[in-house]
Nucleic acid binder design. Structure first.
Lengths: 248, 248
DNA sequence: CAGTCCGAATTTGTTCACAAGATAGTTTTT
DNA sequence: AAAAACTATCTTGTGAACAAATTCGGACTG
């Protein structure tokens, strides 16, 4: 085994653990604009837009040529996407775009509803005017993308709107968890995108949400949040049953 | 699509007939008993038991020698732990055991409470007798570990108990999310372990929870679930303030 | 004497080549 | 001719060398 170069150094290692005395609030080595995150994001986009369908194979070598990089990076990106629940990796056989059963989708949306309702329940009223205006700007962007038929724009502006909305609750862990669960169902996003009526409903909900925020009407906001999640799951389940029959 | 590099090598063919003789763990599909998961689990144990303290550096080479493997595996394990939120990776500078501020801990426990309450709210009553008995067995194990002062045993039996309890709710996504959040605070688990009174309180809560399950008293169960989470967060925050002062 | 700059040692990050596993197509045997 | 086995090829997984980045220590200069 690897005794070739194992102990090049004397066993005594510098005790680095005792630097703990200073303030804990790290400077937040913020973003990671690296190659692997670029691949991750691009793959996610492809999946969201339906350019890659569930159960499609993701061959490392192909992706390398596609992204002009080498397998190491692609490999890491696939591991990352696996943890996000967007792709599924089978040992020694590679990765495929994950296919969710209606049951799984129902479960995920159940948890999402609980968490998003929690977010709007704890967010402090009244909402500062600046925040309302920021939300309106994001909503306008979303609306524009819907009109233009720009699906990628729809996707991102929708993500940004919800990030800003739930961001108002102030609980970072909650925000992260909500986004994580939203990413899990990326693979079925294309079903909602295919339906213009659904896109319009989404837009209308956003407007009403802002209105509820402006007037500090919490009950309305909660009801809207619940309603907002329903169509996406239902659209997918309908499409799934149509393809595979009702045996679920 | 062999564009650039395609090193087809027709020579490699030392196919040693069939190695079908060894079939110890046949399917091997679902589980991942691989090297990297072993490293991940062991590191997590070390952190939970306080063998590695927050802000301590995790040097890849050291871990390699420790686990008799090479850096590729260790690297993946660290990436995995980073995603779990147990360690923090700083670009080009390596990984350290993550240090949580009281604010973060409070937020995480807030979300945990919401999700765990959801689990006990949706779990179907009455609970089958077999499940009750399984919980009692796990609780007995936990109790034994507490009496024996076996901290590793306490940790694992506690994990198993809660996995079984929340598993009753039937929502896989919810279960996974709950466990994920529990793992995030692994680093502060050692504070609870240091306190025998807290361990006894935990044990008592488990007994009462089983009782509530047996008699289908949902309100009691919810109240117990809320109460059960409180002490751990409070113990950590107290310890933290004692070390760094009240400026939080 | 203080401050800065350069260089060595340590540690992480990248790359490439090879080996093992799996699938599919072809051949051989019954 | 059908079934089983073998081979050829594709794909993932592993290991180790190489390269870039950071930190720490010492020397040099203002």
């Amino acid at each position: 085994m690897a005794t070739s170069k194992a102990s090049r150094k004397p066993a005594a290692r510098k005790e680095a653990a005792k630097a703990a005395a200073d303030a804990p609030a790290g400077p937040d080595h913020a973003r990671e604009p690296s190659v692997v995150s670029r691949i991750t994001r691009k793959l996610e986009e492809d999946i969201v837009l339906g350019r890659r369908h569930p159960r499609e194979r993701l061959v490392e070598q192909d992706l390398c040529e596609n992204f002009n990089t080498h397998r190491g990076d692609v490999r890491l990106a696939l591991f990352e996407l696996e943890k996000k629940g967007i792709v599924q990796r089978i040992p020694n056989r590679g990765a495929i775009v994950r296919d969710l059963s209606p049951g799984e989708v129902t479960e995920i949306y159940g948890v999402r509803e609980e968490l998003e309702v929690m977010a709007v329940r704890i967010l402090p009223f009244p909402v500062p005017k600046d925040d309302i205006e920021r939300l309106e700007a994001l909503q306008a962007e979303h609306s524009r993308a819907v009109d233009a038929g720009d699906l990628l724009g729809v996707y991102y502006s929708n993500v940004h709107f919800h990030r800003a909305l739930f961001g108002l609750c102030g609980n970072r862990c909650l925000i992260e968890t909500i986004e994580q669960l939203a990413q899990k169902v990326s693979g079925i996003r294309s079903y909602a995108h295919a339906n213009p009526a659904a896109l319009n409903a989404t837009r209308r909900d956003h407007v009403e949400m802002i209105e509820a925020l402006r007037h500090s009407r919490r009950d309305d906001l909660i009801a809207l949040t619940r309603r907002h999640l329903k169509p996406a799951a239902q659209a997918y389940i309908r499409a799934y049953r149509q393809r595979f029959g009702d045996n679920v």
